[in-house]
Design a protein around this nucleic acid. Structure first.
Lengths: 236, 236
DNA sequence: GCGGTAATTATGTCTAGACATAATAAATCA
DNA sequence: TGATTTATTATGTCTAGACATAATTACCGC
C-alpha cells in the first residue's frame, strides 16, 4: 500500500472507531510529515482526499478537524433491472406494450421538466421475472437528444439498458415514493387494486457547462411493494 | 479558479457535453501539460480526481479514457425530519409514545443485524407537522455503543437529531420499500388501513478498521405515500 | 509465423522546495 | 480599554525533477 493511502486509512480508522470524535483536531501536516517521515505533499494529498469525501474539515491556520455528520445521505444503487433479475433468478424478459411518437404535452409536469421541444418517443412495457411480472415502466425519450432511439428495436430490449450504452453522461433527478396501484397497474402486475407500490421516477438531462441542458429521458417505474426494495449502503 | 480545478472542469465539460463519448481517449498528461503550460503533477492531480469520481478510467501506457456509465446510482438525501418540516411548514413536534429497555431478540432480523449484545433502548414516536401526523418512527438504540442515550430525554426531542450530535462516524445501510398501512399504523397516521406508505429503514454501525463493527441504532420510519417523497440529485 | 525478450511509454508515487492565502495571535497605538 | 496593524502559522497550490510500475510495441532468434 502506498504512503498516501496508508496515512489516509490510518486517520480514517481513528475517526470511524470513535477515537477521534467530531470536532477533534487531527495532527498538523508537519506533525504527520515527521511521524511518517515523508514530504508534506504526501500528507497534504491524503488529508485533501479525506476533506473531499467530507470526513474532515480543514481551516487555514487552525488545522484539520473531524467533521460533524450533517445530512443523512445514501448512495442508492438503481441497477439495471434486467441484469439484476438475470443474476438473482436467472430469467428476465422485457415486454413492450406500446410505442408511439408525439409532441410533448404542456400539462404533463413530468414531460415539461425535460424542457424538450422536439418529438418524444413514448414506450410502455413490463419487466418480467421468471414467474411473475416484476415491474412496469413508462418511458419518454427526447428524440432531439437521442435520435438513434427512433430506429432502435425496443420490442424485447429494456430501454434503460439500451440508453445506458447510447447516452453520454448527464444529470439526473430521482423521486421515490409509495403509491397505491390503480386498476390498469394492478392488472399488469397481477396484484389487487390499491396494493402498495414503490414508484421510482427519474429525469435525465445532458449537462453542459455545469448547467442543466437538454432533456434526454423520463422514466416512471412501479414495483409491487412486496417484490422490490431499494437498498443503499453508505459511508458518511 | 486554480489550475487543477480548471483542467478538471474543462475535461468534465467535454465529457458531459457528449463531445468526448464513453471510450474516447482523452489527451495524454504530457499533452495537457503542454497545453496548459504547467507541471505534470498538476495535470495528474486533476485527472486522478476525475478517475476517483468514476468519470474517467486510467491505464498505464494506454492513456486515460472516458468511462462507460455503469450502475445507476443516486445520492439520496434523507434529511433531518424536524429540520425539514420546520423549514417547509414552520411547525414540527416529536411525540414519544413509548420508551423501554430490554435485551435484543434473536428472532428479530432487524435487531440481529446490529449484532449487539447489551441492552437496547426502544423508542416509538410520531413526527407531527403543523396540521397532521407526518410519519411514525420505531427506533432501537444499542446502549453499549451509545450509553449517554440512557439518560437522554426523548420525550420531545427527535432521537435522530439527538444521535447525529452524539454518534461518531459510521457505516449505514438503508432499505426503502412500499408497505400497506396496518391497523396500528393507520390509526397513528390518520389514514385508511391498507393505504400505501413509504418505509425507510436504516441500520447504523460503528466502523472499525474498515470492517463493520458494533451496532449503534436501527430505525424504521413510515410515511403516508401521499405526504412524503425521497428526492435524489446525482451526477454519474 | 511463433514465442520470448527488450525497449518504449503513460501513469503512479514521491520529494524538497517555493510562494500564496487566510485566519489567528501578538504587538502596537489611540 | 479598544481598535488597528503586524507577525505568525497552517493550509492551498504549484514546480521540476526522480524513480517505479505496468502495459504495449518492437525486435530477434528459431
Amino acid at each position: 500500500m502506498n504512503l498516501e493511502t496508508r496515512i489516509r486509512t490510518d486517520v480514517e480508522a481513528r475517526i470511524r472507531s470513535g477515537e477521534w470524535r467530531p470536532g477533534h483536531r487531527i495532527p498538523f501536516e508537519h506533525e504527520l510529515t515527521a511521524h511518517y517521515g515523508c514530504a508534506r505533499m504526501t500528507v497534504s494529498k491524503a488529508l485533501q482526499a479525506l476533506a473531499r469525501s467530507g470526513l474532515i474539515e480543514r481551516r487555514r491556520k487552525a488545522g484539520s478537524f473531524v467533521a460533524h455528520p450533517h445530512v443523512q445521505s445514501a448512495v442508492v444503487a438503481i441497477p439495471d433491472i434486467g441484469q439484476r433479475l438475470m443474476a438473482q433468478t436467472g430469467a428476465y424478459r422485457f415486454e413492450l406494450l406500446q410505442r408511439h411518437v408525439r409532441a410533448p404535452r404542456r400539462q404533463s409536469a413530468a414531460e415539461a421538466a425535460l424542457h424538450c421541444t422536439g418529438d418524444l418517443l413514448m414506450l410502455d412495457g413490463v419487466h418480467h421475472a421468471a414467474d411473475a411480472p416484476f415491474g412496469i415502466e413508462h418511458r419518454v425519450i427526447c428524440l432531439s437528444s437521442v435520435p438513434e432511439a427512433a430506429a432502435a428495436d425496443f420490442s424485447a430490449a429494456d430501454p434503460g439498458a439500451w440508453l445506458i450504452g447510447h447516452m453520454p453522461w448527464s444529470d439526473a433527478r430521482h423521486r421515490i415514493s409509495a403509491n397505491a396501484a390503480n386498476a390498469e397497474t394492478a392488472a399488469l402486475l397481477a396484484i389487487p387494486v390499491g396494493a402498495a407500490c414503490l414508484q421510482v421516477e427519474r429525469w435525465t438531462w445532458l449537462a453542459a457547462d455545469g448547467a442543466t441542458g437538454a432533456g434526454v429521458t423520463y422514466v416512471k417505474q412501479l414495483y409491487p411493494g412486496d417484490r422490490y426494495d431499494l437498498v443503499a449502503e453508505f459511508k458518511p
